[in-house]
Computed example of a mutant assay.
Amino acid sequence: MTAATLITGVLAADEAGVTPATIRKWVQLGRLAPAGKQGRAQLFRLEDVFAAERAVRRKPHSAG
């Protein structure tokens, strides 16, 4: 079993096609949990980022 590679929020955002602010918002809303820290920077597993992105895209938008 290999350890998952951890990436910064900026790189996670780039990979998911969203802004770093979106990654921070997902964390704030509990949709994405950091897997570690490097100094003050939160680190994420790429598979967790993609799972959060898929969950957001599946969620129907409310009219309004």
Rank of each mutant, 00 (worst) to 15 (best):
L11C: 03
R24G: 07
W26R: 09
I23L: 01
W26V: 00
A35Y: 14
S62I: 11
G9R: 07
L32Q: 00
L29C: 05
A33C: 07
A16F: 08
E15R: 15
R58E: 14
D14T: 03
L32V: 08
A63F: 12
L46R: 01
T5S: 11
A55T: 11
G17W: 14
R54E: 13
L46H: 05
L29K: 00
E47W: 03
K59F: 07
K37M: 06
E15L: 15
R54Y: 12
E15W: 13
F50H: 07
E53H: 11
E47G: 02
T8R: 08
K25D: 08
A55K: 02
L29S: 05
A4G: 08
G30E: 02
A63C: 00
R24Q: 13
K59N: 10
A63Y: 04
L43C: 10
G9I: 03
I23G: 09
P34T: 10
L29R: 09
R54Q: 14
A63Q: 06
I7P: 06
L46I: 06
F44A: 13
R31S: 01
R40A: 15
E15N: 14
V56C: 09
A21K: 15
R24I: 02
F44Q: 05
T2V: 04
A4M: 10
L32M: 09
L43I: 08
T8I: 00
T5Q: 09
S62D: 05
T5N: 01
R24A: 12
A13D: 10
E53G: 00
A33W: 04
A4N: 00
P60Q: 12
H61L: 15
V18Q: 07
L46M: 07
T22S: 12
W26M: 03
V27W: 01
R54V: 05
V27A: 06
Q28F: 13
D14C: 03
H61A: 15
I7A: 04
A13T: 00
E15Y: 11
L32H: 04
D48I: 14
A41W: 09
F44L: 08
